[in-house]
Amino acid sequence: MKERTFRQDHLLGIEHLSVDDIETILETAEAFIEVSSREVKKVPALKGKTVVNLFFENSTRTRSSFEIAAKRLSADLINFNSSVSSLKKGETLKDTVLTLEAMNPHIIVIRHSASGSPHYLTTFARSSIVNAGDGFHEHPTQALLDALTIQQRLRTLRGLKIAIVGDILHSRVALSNILLHQKLGNEIALIGPPSLVPAEFAKLGATVYYDIRRGVRNADVVMMLRVQAERGARNYFPSIREYRNLFAIDRKIFSLASRRAILMHPGPINRDVEIETSMADSDESVILQQVTNGIAVRMAVLYLLKGEIHETLN
């Protein structure tokens, strides 16, 4: 492993990471995969450190993933859920975070429906802030765990065609993946109806397709996004039925992708909506591997922000 040079105070988004940073996180994550396969899945890398999971949106999977990651690093972790929080009493985000900080945590992991909330926290908080998904903006650990999964299956992260299908406009998973693969120089195809895939995304180095057959052709990675019924209610598309007819992935369409192609989905999946159920369970599907890798990537992020090495570097 080459010498680590990770010098970020926070993980706000892929936007702020260099290619070196991305590679450092992925290499560190690979080292942590081994930990999760041990009988005793624990290392003392964050012993004595406190991590706060501050989740203002329901998200069992991401919250659990950060929780397991922190615990496998021997950190102390507390979960702060909006449903049981003082936010119901009208407390502001700033007051909530200042209160938590009075207990001297080292890292705050935040999930919030308002884009830019993690950035806002950095204007007054002393802890390292990790963005676990902010509004329609970024979800950096998701893009990183996707990258780790791609690397494991395809043995490279370069020279690839990445096709992302669905609600690009409202997807933080899509934006973080677009920024990551733009930095790595991969070809990016964005597929969906114009109401959900504005043409301006071309400025991020992507090509926009309204026909899934054309967009998926020769792709090495086909990444499906979850369809939110609420978008239909707001007329981004006329009905789930029509959406499925135009943009769902099935065996026939997937066969247009490259021979080694993998199928990804950040979850939770809607079986037989954006993804034909048999495809979700196929050999090409890496959906559960993504979940497994999520722990290693989040361990890497927490460790690089506040682990021992970081301290000796400073």
Binding site: G116, R172, L175
Partner: peptide
């Protein structure tokens, strides 16, 4: 609305 709103995830 435009490139900036899309890139920063703001309506």
């Amino acid at each position: 609305e435009g490139f900036i709103s899309y890139k920063y995830g703001l309506r």
